[in-house]
Simulated assay, not measured.
Amino acid sequence: MPAMTYTLRWPDASETTAYSPSLVIQDYFAPGQAYALDDFLQKLREATGIANDRVRAKFGFACSRASDQLADIEARVARHAGQPGAQVQVLAFGPAD
């Protein structure tokens, strides 16, 4: 199963690289595009759910790394939630490490 990374820029201009066990992330986000926090989180939860379903179908269990990654991103979103107009920008997709 092809895995990937994706780089995010947060409202405070910090950048993080996240992991997905599936290329499905590319179906939900576009490099260079910025997303309102709520929209971003909704799309990410759906994409991560699909990725975990694919892993579960192939290996019999969900990807704990993807679940941990989602929890980390949810915490980052919560830190920026009070900022009017806050957005997350998807900078790039890359190969998994």
Rank of each mutant, 00 (worst) to 15 (best):
D68M: 14
T48I: 15
S67I: 11
A36L: 15
E46H: 04
T16N: 04
T7M: 10
L44N: 04
F40H: 00
A92E: 13
R54P: 01
L44R: 08
E46N: 01
A47L: 12
S67H: 01
G60D: 07
N52W: 07
A62H: 06
L44K: 07
S14F: 05
V90N: 00
A71S: 11
L44A: 05
Q42P: 00
Q87T: 15
V55Y: 00
A3M: 04
A47S: 15
R45W: 00
R79E: 11
L23K: 10
A34K: 09
A86Y: 06
G60R: 12
V88H: 02
A47D: 03
Q83Y: 03
F59L: 15
P84N: 01
A66C: 13
S20F: 03
D53G: 14
G60S: 10
P2Q: 13
A18H: 10
L44T: 04
L41F: 01
S67K: 06
I25A: 13
Y28C: 13
A34T: 09
W10T: 05
D27C: 11
A62S: 11
G32L: 14
Q26D: 10
L8W: 05
I25C: 06
R56V: 06
Q42M: 08
Q89H: 08
L91Q: 12
L41V: 02
I73H: 02
P11N: 06
A30F: 13
L70P: 01
P11C: 08
T17C: 14
N52L: 09
Q83T: 11
